[in-house]
């Protein structure tokens, strides 16, 4: 029943706590540090309401021990900005400047397409949708549905969620890079997360 000092960067802020080994990351975020954006829906790893980004990858924080997150960088939906990784909004800064809600294009698309009702799944759904688009900027509806299968929504029937991700894709374009060769794929796997 060991206790552990942990520190993590959450939405840009340094947070520390002493936690029991058994404490789940989602409870450290919600109760120790007050980040209530990730919610708890199923507790079995199915629903994805507790999704956060951990060191750049979306994870289900109800299946991660808080102590495992020691030293990591965590982003909740409260900490995201702008477009997903590797993408830029078509029209660039003008669009962002005109958007007084401060939403990124994915959030704005959920708003415009009525892609949320009760909002409980929304933080996880937004984070996973951004992640999906970063990996596949032009997904088909089938790819979106398959890609969101780790995020359960009981309100929308997913119809407008899929519409929202499609709409977000239309708002986004890959950032032009200066032609560097892609890393050797096999070597790249070395950098995988824990």
């Amino acid at each position: 029943m060991s206790e552990h000092e942990i520190a993590a960067t959450v939405d840009g802020a340094t947070e520390t706590a002493t936690v029991e080994a058994r404490r789940l990351l989602v409870h450290a975020l919600r109760e120790n540090w007050g980040y209530t954006q990730p919610t708890v829906g199923c507790e079995s790893g199915k629903c994805g309401a507790c999704t956060v980004e951990m060191d750049g990858e979306v994870v289900k924080s109800c299946c991660v021990l808080a102590v495992q997150a020691d030293g990591s960088e965590i982003t909740t939906v409260g900490g995201i900005e702008g477009a997903p990784d590797g993408l830029a909004e078509v029209g660039g800064d003008d669009v962002a400047a005109a958007d007084d809600d401060g939403f990124g294009p994915v959030q704005r698309s959920f708003h415009e397409e009525h892609g949320l009702q009760c909002g409980y799944c929304t933080p996880g759904m937004i984070l996973r949708s951004r992640d999906l688009l970063a990996a596949n900027p032009d997904p088909s509806r089938e790819e979106i549905r398959e890609g969101l299968k780790g995020n359960v929504c009981r309100c929308t029937g997913y119809e407008n969620v899929v519409d929202a991700v499609e709409a977000a894709a239309r708002k986004l374009e890959p950032i032009e890079t200066d032609g560097g060769a892609p890393e050797d794929a096999v070597d790249a796997a070395d950098g995988g997360a824990d």
């Binding site: 979306v58 289900k60 299946c63 996973r128 992640d131 999906l132 890609g147 299968k149 790249a188």
Partner: peptide, 22 residues
Amino acid sequence: DADPAGVDALLDATSEVGDAQI
């Protein structure tokens, strides 16, 4: 991500595991 050649079935199976977060 590594997408190694010669292990088609393994990559297919791995892509079916759980969901993206898992």
